[in-house]
Design a protein around this nucleic acid. Structure first.
Lengths: 125, 125
DNA sequence: TGTCATTGAATGACGCGTCATATAGATTGA
DNA sequence: TCAATCTATATGACGCGTCATTCAATGACA
């Protein structure tokens, strides 16, 4: 039976979806237009920028994002191809990699982050 | 400069993302497993079920969902192929279509909706 | 009525995320 | 030390959503 509580749940969910898509879409389009980088790429860049100094990042990245391990790997591929990030082999465990921002990556991140925060502020209230 | 307000915004955004993906993922997997239908398919089905009686739906659907017009069209393709929905031509405006649940569609919707609401409740609190 | 712009929907090319797998390196324990 | 197992990442096939475009029907206006 369709209770009014059900209706409320559905409405709440739709409103979450709408604001999620509105916000993600706005940020994605803005970053794409101004920096030629997608939202997921920026978010990985952001995580890497945040964690300068801790090691063997690919693994850690996977734990800090809802993306799949394989998605992270492909995002990093693109970032690397764009020259924003570089994979460094990790001496203690040669299966692992850790990531570094290149100069270009650091530069792009710092200006893109301003835009990103501004759009979050605008969209999240 | 990275203010602490910025940090809060970013944290808030990540938490929204996480709960969005957690919830959407859980529902999607459950519907897929039990009813062989994805979340977007269910949501269109749900919208159609809701609006029995109003006409020329394709258009209206696009306004009630963050999906693209073309995404809606493809979701409806799949629903139609699965025999859950049928496209009816609209006499007043022959460019438009409106949608109807088939018997199978109505049946599936009513049991899947129970599951859907339960998962929303569980995930949204 | 004939043209031109607009609208509802479908389609194809394309990019991205996911799942299942592959590969190489690490770990355990006999 | 050698299997067996596990762990970190990469890769390929695949499905889906998006964008740009197309097509048909409509509307507007001379």
């Amino acid at each position: 039976m369709a209770t009014t509580h059900d209706r409320q749940l559905v409405e709440q969910w739709r409103s979450i979806q709408n604001s999620y898509f509105r916000t993600a879409g706005a940020i994605d389009r803005a970053l794409e237009a101004k920096f030629d980088i997608g939202l997921n790429e920026f978010e990985i860049l952001d995580l890497v920028a945040e964690s300068e100094e801790s090691a063997c990042r690919m693994k850690a990245l996977g734990e800090r994002t809802p993306m799949t391990q394989s998605a992270v790997s492909k995002v990093v591929d693109r970032l690397e191809k764009a020259g924003l990030v570089s994979r460094q082999t990790c001496v203690d465990d040669r299966r692992s990699l850790f990531l570094e921002l290149t100069e270009a990556g650091r530069a792009l991140h710092s200006t893109a982050a301003v835009e990103h925060r501004a759009l979050l502020k605008e969209n999240l209230g």
